[in-house]
Nucleic acid binder design. Sequence first.
RNA 1: CGGGGAGUGGCGCAGCCCGGUAGCGCAUCCGCUUUGGGAGCGGAGGGUCGCAGGUUCAAAUCCUGUCUCCCCGACCA
Length: 488
Amino acid sequence: MAQKITKREQDYSQWYLDVVKEAKLAEHSPVRGCMVIRPNGMALWENMQAGLDGMFKETGHENAYFPLFIPKSFLSKEAQHVEGFAKECAVITHSRLKAVDGGVEVDPESKLEEELIVRPTSETIIWDTYRNWIQSFRDLPILINQWANVVRWEMRTRLFLRTMEFLWQEGHTAHATKQEAVDETLQMLEVYRTFAEDYMAMPVITGVKTESERFAGAEDTYCIEALMQDGKALQAGTSHFLGQNFAKAFDVKFQDSDGDHKLVWATSWGVSTRLIGGLIMTHSDDQGLVLPPKLAPTQVVIVPIYRDDEQRAVVLEYGDSIYNELKELGIRVKLDDRDNYKPGFKFAEHEATGIPLRIAVGPRDVEKGNVELARRDTKNKSFESREGIGTLVQELLGTIQNDLFETAKKRRDEKTSEVDSYEEFKSVLEEKGGFVYAHWDGTAETEELIKNETKATIRCIPLTEGKAGKCMVTGNPSKQKVLFAKAY
RNA sequence: CGGGGAGUGGCGCAGCCCGGUAGCGCAUCCGCUUUGGGAGCGGAGGGUCGCAGGUUCAAAUCCUGUCUCCCCGACCA
C-alpha cells in the first residue's frame, strides 16, 4: 500500500503539508505566500463560518462590509496601531497598466495622489465610518462583524497557519461605557472558546496577552490558545478591548444622557482560516485528516461493494435506501457510487479527507441485513443491523464529536506541566514541550530573557485565579503562574 | 530578511559532473478481465526541461540574472 503521507514522528511539518494536500484542502498558488483553497477546504471553512456566524447573531451582532482599501493616512492615526502593522502592508501606488509590445507595464501617469493600503485589519476604516454613525448614546452600542479577506506581508508562510492573504471575520463594536466594552470583549472570547471546544473539538486555554504580545492599539488582548500534537501552541483567536484609543484617533464622540460629550469605547475580535490549521493539527493522524462531525462537509460516506452488474444493482439499491434514510435525518451523507475505483482505494481516500464515518455495504450485508460501520477517528469497525441505522449513525456522530474533544483534551493535559524553577522549566521544555505553567515577575525584560534563552513565549495569563509565588527567573513576586509554550 | 535544499508531461523522480535534441513510475484515455483495504494485462495521448539573457555548430546539461516552493532561524495571527 502506497503511503502518501509522511509519518508525524518522522517529519511533523511535512506531515502537515501532506495532510493538507491529500485531504485536498488547499494548495500553493502562483503568488508567493498565497494559497488556493480547494472545494474541500472551502466547504470546511463555510461550516465554520456558519457556526460562528450563528453565534455572532445570537449575541446581537450584524454583518456589514467595509472596503478592501484603506487610505494611507487612516492607518497612521493611531500610533501603536501603525507601528504594529507598518512592516507588513501591501501598498497600492498606481491605478492602471498600459500595453507595451506584447506585455504590460505600470503606467507612471496613473500614480495615486494618496496611496491605498490593502487592509491588514479594518479598525481604521471602520472607526472613520463609525464617527459618522455615532452622535448620541442612543446610537450605541454598534455591534458589527464582517467576513473578509485581509493581507499581511509575511516573510515565511505555511498553508492556513500563516499566509499573506487569509480569510477571517473581524468584529468591531462601539460602546458607551468601559464596562460594556470589557463585557463585550469577554463575551466574544467566550464565544470563541465555545466554538473551538464544541464545534472544533479543540480544547483551549483562555487568557490575557502580555504587553509584548498585545494587539497593536489595544488596551488588553484576550486569546484562546490551543496545543498542537507536536507540543507547540497555536493562538487560535483574539478578542481585544481597545479602550478609547481608536475613538481618540478618529474623534468618535457621543452625547450621553447627562448631556456630556464622551469618547466611545471599543472592541475588536477575530478568527481566521488559521483555525483550519489548528483543526488539522489537533485531530489528524498518519492516515490523513480527521474532522469533527459538526464541521465535516461530509459526515458519512457509503461505499458499495460488488462483483458484477447484478450485485451492483442490488447493493446500490440497498446503499441508496440508507442514503435516503440518513439524509432524511439531516445527516450530510454521500453515496460513493463511482465505478472506476475499487473499494480499497475509496476507503483510503475517504480516510485522507477526514470523513468521520464510513458505511460499507456488500452482497453479504444485503443478505444479512447488515452494514459495516467504520469510525475515522478510532478506525474501529463493526457490523450493525440495517434496521435503525439512522438513529445509530446519529448517535455515533455525537459520540465521535465528544471523543475527539476528550482525546484532544487528554493529549493537551498530558503535555501540560507546572514548574517552580527555571532549571525545571528549561528541562521540561526541552524534553517534553507543550504548555508549561510558571511564575513570572510581570516585566517585559524577564519575558524577553526567557524567550531568548528558551524560545518559549508567554502564551497568556490565564483567566482562572492562581496562587501567588516567586518569579522562576528573578525571584520577584508573581501574582499567579502564567502559561508558557513554544508557539506557531 | 539570513542559511540550506529543490524546480524536467497532472504528480513523484532520473538524466546535468563529462553539451549531441528527453526517459521512468504513478495518474489520464481506450479495451478486456476485476471489485470486502490504494486491481491486472494490452494499447494510446501528453513535456517551449521555472523564467530571461549569455557561451556554443549544438544547452535540460556550462555561465549570469530572476521568480517560486520546501526546511531551519529572525518577525508576526
